[in-house]
């Protein structure tokens, strides 16, 4: 198990390096720097600014010093918010994004698994068709459409929930979490259903039935664990989607989180903030992929010896 985790960690290093290098050079070669603003800046001032942020040094030297700063956990100063470090800005965005992601994950798992189990227990009846066609709608309906529609219906017409905001009025966290979680709930429902159906047709379930175990125990104690592997394998990569989904959801609902920061940083050409948040996202994604691999290996010992089906 530890060797498995170790080899996965080793694989993560080149990924992270490529992410950092790609973003670094992409941003540096981009036309228009952070100081090429509307106002004409006096050349001396510009030079002084560039010296302050080490933009006058050769590119590779800049890259080297950025890497060494990064290794010490220092993302550098922000270009657009003078006097604030990228670390501070990222730290300010984390709580809201983490909370949103957490609730969305709960929505995805609880809603999705419930729907999937209900569907699998009575296949090809209306209890199967209803949740599964709703899941199809959830997959086809993009976040940026579902969010506004929910706001329109529950916020503006029915006036059940606040329209936007985060942690200001009670209940304003419901719609963002639902919006972000819905698509994943749909995938989880489909995976749970197909996984459970497959497991329920296996011999050891027949044995359990032959022993006269109640249906409840068979499903929740014996079948569910085996059918969760695809769900767990899905949740790791889904985390990446959850992050990019948070760009939209945080923009729509005005949640002061990382996603909104990133979009703003990209528009502002705030080099260090873009770099910092990209690296931060990449680390998170790698970590969550690792976690889901480890969890999948724990659920299915067959994966531990080999490399698993993903490679």
């Amino acid at each position: 198990m530890w060797r498995f985790i170790g080899s996965r960690l080793l694989q993560a290093i080149p990924v992270l390096f490529i992410v950092i290098a790609l973003t670094f050079f992409l941003v540096r070669f981009a036309p228009g720097g952070p100081f090429s603003t509307e106002k004409a800046v006096v050349p001396e001032v510009k030079r002084a600014l560039e010296a302050q942020y080490h933009l006058d040094q050769p590119l590779l030297v800049q890259f080297g010093s950025y890497l060494s700063d990064l290794a010490r956990g220092d993302f550098g100063p922000s270009f657009k918010y003078p006097g604030r470090s990228v670390n501070e800005l990222i730290a300010a965005g984390i709580p809201a994004t983490a909370e949103l992601g957490f609730y969305a994950l709960i929505v995805a798992v609880v809603l999705g698994m419930t729907a999937g189990i209900v569907a699998a227990l009575s296949p090809n009846t209306w209890r199967d068709y209803l949740p599964m066609s709703s899941a199809m709608i959830g997959i086809c309906m993009p976040t940026f459409l579902l969010g506004p529609l929910l706001v329109l219906i529950f916020g503006l017409w029915l006036e059940w929930t606040p329209v936007s905001g985060w942690g200001e009025v009670p209940g304003d966290k419901i719609l963002p979490s639902l919006t972000l979680g819905a698509a994943y709930a749909a995938y989880v429902a489909r995976l749970t259903r197909s996984g459970l159906l497959e497991v329920l047709s296996q011999d050891y379930i027949r044995t359990a039935r032959a022993k006269g175990l109640p249906n409840f125990i068979i499903v929740f104690k014996h079948a569910l664990r085996g059918s969760l592997i695809p769900v767990v394998a899905f949740l790791g990569p889904a985390f990446a989607g959850l992050l990019s989904g948070s760009f939209v959801v945080e923009t729509i609902f005005q949640v002061p989180g990382l996603g909104r920061f990133f979009v703003q940083a990209a528009f502002n050409r705030d080099y260090t903030l873009i770099l910092g948040s990209t690296v931060f996202f990449a680390v998170l994604i790698v970590v969550f992929n690792l976690l889901s691999d480890v969890l999948a290996a724990w659920l299915n010992p067959r994966l531990r010896s080999g490399l698993g089906d993903r490679s």
Binding site: I18, V19, L22, T23, A266, I285
Partner: peptide, 10 residues
Amino acid sequence: ALPFMIFVVL
């Protein structure tokens, strides 16, 4: 394993 959505936006 790269965070693609981010690169697309970038």
